[in-house]
Amino acid sequence: MQLTQDQIQELFVFTEKKFVRYYDLQVELVDHLAERIEEKLSSDASLNFDAALQMIYKDFGIFGFSKIVHEKSEQLRKQNNKRLLAEIKNPFRWPEVIASLALALFIWTLINLTDKLFMDVLFVSFLVISASIVIWTRKKYSPHKKIMMTENMPDHLGLIPFIYQFVFLKELLPHHSYGYALFMFSAIIFQIACFRIGKKLRQEAKINYPAAFA
């Protein structure tokens, strides 16, 4: 006995009421619940949809779906960080390494030709532009339904100005130093990696969960 479209929709509402806010996780849980309900209804004709659903939900234990949601969120965070790390390594691989070397040379030249105030203004502008792009992209390309895999994207934008404030504005490192140049270079490479990983995650989500973007 197959569940109707309305009953499937009821299951989506049910998972949402049980604090599963993410569509990608809802899809998996709805399928699980639906198949088990279909089995129950086939084996016991006296049962109705709601009673079968309640019986099956009990099997998830006293914490219901919350343990699954929490663990999934943790695993996604780890997975996305691993992917980010792999992405950060790409600019040091052939042929991208050529562009990276050119960027390093450009930063070093800029530092030597300008004063600290100019670099500070330039760096803050870079952060503001990066943040604006992240916010704009998220608004424009976000799914209509929440998807956990894209909500947990690593963009760590707050980390760079935090380090900048403590290490450089306090002048722990002189302006014309390799350390200063290295920081600038790392910040740009890191931000590019964040953009790339965000784009990939959105593309994957679109392929796997087109209904969330419809």
Partner: peptide, 15 residues
Amino acid sequence: TEGALYPSLHKLEAD
């Protein structure tokens, strides 16, 4: 139990 199976599947996916 579902509470053990899905976190394990998600962990293996993340790994």
